[in-house]
Design a protein around this nucleic acid. Structure first.
Ligand SMILES: [Mn+2]
Ligand SMILES: [Mn+2]
Ligand SMILES: [Zn+2]
Ligand SMILES: [Zn+2]
Lengths: 151, 151
DNA sequence: CTGCTTATTGCGAATCTTATTTAATAAGCA
DNA sequence: TGCTTATTAAATAAGATTCGCAATAAGCAG
């Protein structure tokens, strides 16, 4: 899980016969400058770029998010039903995990260094090349516990 | 994360004003008797039941899987793109986690007791009612590493 | 710097999973 | 045993993501 710059992204892409496009650079930049604790869906990213005057099609957004997740640059998160969220994939000491309320989707980030260690060790043991490891806690938040039993 | 029987499922449902139906009982039974390491998608479950002569509609399958996941009876897993997989949610010592190849979806289960401990502690600290906690490692398996660079 | 190859983009249309609507059914309970 | 209403099946809709294709432009060789 290295930290990417526009330059290192370009070389990693070119090494595989792929290309660095302005769209990819812009999207990486958005995630690199996203506030801690923020997570973007494809639609979120699309709207954010629209508001900044960047014209990147939704198709390209989807393709780029998938590509960068497969490269280990972004993390793909299941924070809500029906669509994915993304954030930059950072190593220690920024590596963190998520506690999610399954009813209202309120999300709390937490850290635990032993998880990344376990992930690294387990992947290595099986000969896998690690891209990301994440712990997800599904639970019901205090507010939703008090609400009267809707599922 | 208690272990459910048809009886305890019924009381937990009835306590909330809900009902135990034959469909729900059948679906719980399938997951309770599923071989270790097996994970079912909604479609998988539907086909499995069809082959056993059980007529349960796909709508009911989806509703039941969601309900049981929200109750903490089943775990919802992201083992492949585009659809979820489910397995029974078991406590220590059966509690386990998943290492997934993002290219071919080959999945390996592994255990690590400290994860459930961390999940329990973190949920408690925030006042959340724990349903499930899981660690997911995204990686590229040895076979896919050798394959020539398709994403 | 120039031209060529082909990866990538944007657009629209398609796909596919999951949710919803509705009438019929049946679980729980008095 | 009868009543209330949660649940079902089936058809339909919704919504996220992917795909096909023509136009564009990144990388590279000359
Ligand atoms: Mn996060
Ligand atoms: Mn499993
Ligand atoms: Zn909540
Ligand atoms: Zn693989």
């Amino acid at each position: 899980m290295p930290l990417y710059t526009a330059g290192s992204l370009k070389s990693e892409l070119n090494d595989r016969g792929w290309r660095l496009t302005p769209q990819r650079e812009v999207i990486l930049h958005v995630f690199q400058n996203l506030a801690r604790g923020k997570h973007l869906s494809a639609e979120d990213l699309y709207n954010l770029l629209q508001n900044e005057g960047e014209q990147i099609s939704l198709s390209t957004i989807y393709r780029t998010l998938k590509l960068m997740a497969r490269m280990g640059i972004l993390r793909e998160l299941e924070l809500a039903e029906g669509h994915k969220h993304y954030e930059i994939n950072q190593p220690y000491p920024y590596h963190h995990h998520h506690l999610i309320c399954v009813r209202c989707n309120k999300t709390i980030e937490f850290k635990n260094d032993s998880i990344l260690k376990t992930g690294t060790k387990t992947a290595k043991k099986e000969g896998y090349h690690l891209l990301d490891c994440q712990m997800t806690i599904h639970a019901v938040c205090p507010t939703c516990q008090r609400a009267l039993l809707p599922i």
